[in-house]
C-alpha cells in the first residue's frame, strides 16, 4: 500500500518539477529543467545504491559511504584548486576537467583504501570504517586550514561547493554520468542475490560458497564509482544516504535487495525532487537543497521510528 503510493508519487513529482510555472516553454525552461531532472535521477540512484550496498557490507544501518572520506577528498581537492588557481580555476579546467579529475581522485582514494586494508584477503569492514571516519575528520581539517588562506570571494565559492546543488551540473556531464551509472546499475541488478547472501555476514556467506573477499572488493569498487559520480555531479550529500536506505527498508518490509534497492532509488529521487521543487517555487533559492533534504528526511525518519516503536 505504502509502497504503491511511493511509486505513484514519483511520476507526479517529476511532472510537477518539469511543468510547474514553466509556461510550457519548450525552448528554454523545460530543457533546463530536464538537465536538472537528469542530475537528480543520476545522483538519487547513486546515493540510494551506494548507501544500501554499503550498509549491507558493513552490516550496519547508520553508515553511508559519505563518511568513508570520499566527500572529504572531493572538498579538499576543490579547496586546493581554488587556492592554487584562484577563482578562475573553474574556467581554467573547464567543468568537465574538474569533474573528471575529482572522480579520478576519489576512485584512486578508494583503491588505496581497499588495497591497504584488504591485503591478505582480510575482509574486515570495521577497520575500513574506522580508517574512513578518521580520514574524513583529517581531510575536513585540512580543507578548513586551506580555507583560512583563501580570500572571501574564493571562500564563498568553496562554501557553496560544500552543499548539494543541481544547478551546477552541465548537460554533457549529466549524460556521461548517467551512462556510467546505468552500467553500474546493471551490474548491481545482476548481483542482488549475492548481496542478499552477503547481508548474512562474512562467515555465513563463505559457508554458502561465496568468495567473500572478491565479492567485497567488487561491491566496494561499485560503491566508489557511484559516490564519485554523485559527488562530482551534485556535491556532498552527507547523511542523506542513511535516511534514504532506512526509509526504503521500512517501506519494503523485506531485506531482499531486489525490493530494497529500487525502492531506495525511488525514495532518493523523490526526496531530491521535493526539495528542489520547494527551493525553486516556495523559497525562491533562499535556502539550499541540503538543508531541505535533511529537514524532510529527518522529520520523516523520526516519524517512522516513533511509529514503528508504537506498534509491537
Amino acid at each position: 500500500m505504502m509502497r504503491r503510493a511511493a511509486w505513484l508519487l514519483l511520476p507526479a513529482l517529476v511532472l510537477a518539477f518539469l511543468l510547474l510555472g514553466s509556461g510550457l516553454d519548450f525552448n528554454y525552461v523545460i530543457p533546463k529543467r530536464l538537465v536538472r531532472l537528469g542530475a537528480i535521477v543520476v545522483a538519487g540512484v547513486c546515493i540510494a545504491l551506494s548507501s544500501v550496498i554499503f550498509q549491507t557490507l558493513a552490516g550496519n544501518r547508520v553508515l553511508t559511504p559519505a563518511i568513508m572520506g570520499y566527500e572529504g577528498i572531493y572538498l579538499l581537492f576543490q579547496a586546493v584548486l581554488v587556492l592554487w588557481l584562484g577563482t578562475g580555476s573553474v574556467a581554467r579546467l573547464g567543468a568537465q576537467g574538474n569533474a573528471l579529475l575529482s572522480m579520478a581522485l576519489m576512485l584512486g582514494y578508494s583503491w588505496l583504501l581497499q588495497r591497504w586494508l584488504l591485503r591478505e584477503g582480510r575482509g574486515d569492514v570495521y577497520r575500513l570504517l574506522l580508517l574512513g571516519l578518521v580520514l574524513t575528520m583529517v581531510l575536513g581539517t585540512f580543507t578548513q586550514f586551506i580555507q583560512l588562506k583563501t580570500s572571501p570571494g574564493e571562500f564563498s565559492i568553496l562554501q557553496s561547493l560544500g552543499y548539494t546543488s543541481f544547478n551546477r551540473a552541465q548537460p554533457a556531464q549529466v549524460l556521461y554520468s548517467g551512462l556510467l551509472v546505468a552500467a553500474v546499475a546493471v551490474l548491481v541488478a545482476r548481483g542482488t542475490r549475492v548481496l542478499d547472501v552477503l547481508a548474512l555476514g562474512r562467515d555465513q556467506a563463505i559457508a554458502l560458497g561465496l568468495d567473500h573477499g572478491r565479492c567485497l572488493r567488487l561491491q566496494m569498487a561499485l560503491i566508489a564509482v557511484l559516490v564519485a559520480v554523485s559527488t562530482s555531479l551534485v556535491g556532498p550529500t552527507a547523511f542523506m544516504g542513511v535516511f534514504v536506505a532506512n526509509i526504503a527498508y521500512a517501506l519494503a518490509r523485506s531485506a531482499r535487495h531486489q525490493v530494497t534497492l529500487p525502492l531506495a532509488c525511488a525514495v532518493a529521487i523523490g526526496m531530491f525532487l521535493l526539495a528542489q521543487l520547494l527551493v525553486e517555487h516556495l523559497f525562491n533559492y533562499r535556502t539550499s537543497v541540503s538543508i531541505l533534504v535533511n529537514l524532510v528526511c529527518g522529520a520523516y525518519f523520526l516519524a517512522l521510528m516513533v511509529r514503528t516503536r508504537g506498534t509491537p
Binding site: 549475492v194 547472501v197 555465513q204 554458502l208 531485506a255
Partner: peptide, 22 residues
Amino acid sequence: FNLRLTVEDLVAFGRFPYSRGL
C-alpha cells in the same frame, strides 16, 4: 540478527550453493 527475512527466505539461502539464488 536484524534482517527482515522469513524463516522460508532464510532456509532458501541453503540452496544458494546449488542455484545461486534462482
